[in-house]
Design a protein around this nucleic acid. Sequence first.
DNA 1: ATAGAACCTATAGTTACTATAGGTTCAAGG
DNA 2: CCTTGAACCTATAGTAACTATAGGTTCTAT
Lengths: 142, 142
Amino acid sequence: MNYEKYSIGQLAKKTACKVETVHYYEKVGLMPEPPRTEGGHRIYSLAHVKRLNFIRRSRDLGFRIEQVKELLKFIDEPNHYCGEVKAMAMQQSRVVQEKIDDLQRLKSALNEMVTHCASGDKPVDDCPIVDALFTERAAEHY
Amino acid sequence: MNYEKYSIGQLAKKTACKVETVHYYEKVGLMPEPPRTEGGHRIYSLAHVKRLNFIRRSRDLGFRIEQVKELLKFIDEPNHYCGEVKAMAMQQSRVVQEKIDDLQRLKSALNEMVTHCASGDKPVDDCPIVDALFTERAAEHY
DNA sequence: ATAGAACCTATAGTTACTATAGGTTCAAGG
DNA sequence: CCTTGAACCTATAGTAACTATAGGTTCTAT
């Protein structure tokens, strides 16, 4: 076994995470309160490194903090099955796809505006982009 | 000309924007301080409706508030040309494309994890998704 | 022993709003 | 004219997920 101990700075470096972020994760309950030195400095072990890696990777994949808490619950508590984790990953994949769709629409709108604006040497009050932006929004919003 | 006057509530309804958001836009300098009734209620005109539509549409297209301020400057100040607006729209389109690319990578990672997790009936400590999440992150992050 | 890096806590700032509290004004009905 | 209740007013706090700052303490290496 690896019984190496780490300071918060070493933990942060190993996980590409800032020290302040570790403090934050502790405050919101993602990271446990670790043992301390006599002087009050936090002492971490390899288990903490792994846990923080898990948190960071989950966050990178777009899971919100509350979702990461759920994922961690699956791990911290016994009697959970892989299927629960799989369901969350699939759900997250769908959420991400929706965001992609949104952004695609957005980019199309921008590109369309740009192509309508051929010259660029017109004064602003004659600009088709500005014009498009002034247009009233769809009725469904009312 | 249309000299119709609107209360803040009517303005909000016409632009699919909340009253509090109009207050906020005034506070951060996107909307001007409008004239008031004797009792202190704000009075808006059609120009305000158009301006707020412009702001909302720009925000919907992903422009940040500071960028919307720049766009409005082009309109509020004389001697600006369509090309400046076009450049901002093109830049914004690139930013959006980058976000799309990021999300695509993210979704691929999620989908890969899901396909590796065939059964779902394994206990969590044997789950390939959990496993992947525990994996250390790429060296470039260090 | 001491210097300075790393750590500690608590608080404020970031973005773009949204929500709340507690009070005032407006418009419509009686 | 008076009342009632919706709409308005200001100021402040809350949201997500951190980041940054201030002011003080501890650790580590010389």
